[in-house]
Amino acid sequence: MEYVVITFLCLGILLYFLLGGADFGAGIIELFTSTKNRSRTRKTMYQAIGPVWEANHMWLIIAIVILFVGFPHIYTTMSVYLHIPLLIMLIGIIARGTAFVFRHYDAIKDDMQWLYNRIFRYSSFVTPLFLGIIAGSVISGHIDTDAKDFLSAYVYSWLNWFSVAVGLFTVALCGFLAAIYLIGETDNDHDKRRFIKKAEYMNIAAVIFGAMVFIAAQFDHIPLVDWVFKNMIGLTAIILASLSLILLWYLLIKGKTQILRVLAGFQVTMILVAISYAHFPNFIRLKNGEAISLFETVGPPKTIYSLGLALLLGSILILPFLGYLFYKFKKKEE
């Protein structure tokens, strides 16, 4: 059952990254859209993510519940030492979710829309930035459980070059995923070309920030190069990601958009695998060189058994229903 629970944890994180990421990305795209095209982008976005955005964010809840029920020590270590970025991320989630709904359901469209839009766009940027920072901090080895002063315990744990680079990389990936997703949701050529352009820019940004992650890792003495290139799985994943990058650009330029989504999803998955495979089952790296492993902190057997059972049962109910939701509201080919 341990493996079932861990699989669901990884799946939850991955799907949150892909679906929730695309969702955040839509706001990032809007942020970087010129004023004259914004209302068109917004309209496409509503049709595309309106019905599914709540469900996309449920993956975060699933992941966090698995953590605190199954791996409480990991959950509490993160809660204590990454309190500040978690808090900022939460504020972002609150601001973004409410602004998205408010601007849609305000019965009178007036100046308030200006406020909702601002909040929505900026929080769409800030939230994945801090999600990335949190993810980076977990593996960066800056969490210091022996720290005596405020700054080294609660601030330098996440405020370092590596974590910030991962944060920016995450933002670029989200924007990229969203642009790819939106290409398939428009009904005219003009918008389609616009989103293709956006996807290209976001991809370039992702490559640049990705390189920055590696540079920052060197700077902060994090053996990222070893993790990615010194094991078969990591190496294969990064090669596959690079290959799909080339194929992706080819398809983008050719304007063949059918399998782009699958490819983009695959690429991001491979990047996650490449970065995280080397430490599995370690989850948090600490400053004193130790690590908190999933297997060492796993909860008592009865808990894990019933958690696994609940997840299996839940997915039988959820997945078909969710699949039908995506199917039903996907843009129909004319």
Binding site: M58, P72, F329
Partner: peptide
């Protein structure tokens, strides 16, 4: 949470499922 999580987490994991279904159904 460190101590209580594994003990009283069961309703939360079921609640996660229920909440998820609610979000899908609302969509």
């Amino acid at each position: 949470m460190e101590h209580a999580g594994p003990i009283f987490g069961m309703p939360f994991s079921l609640e996660g499922t229920a909440f998820f279904i609610e979000a899908i159904a609302l969509g």
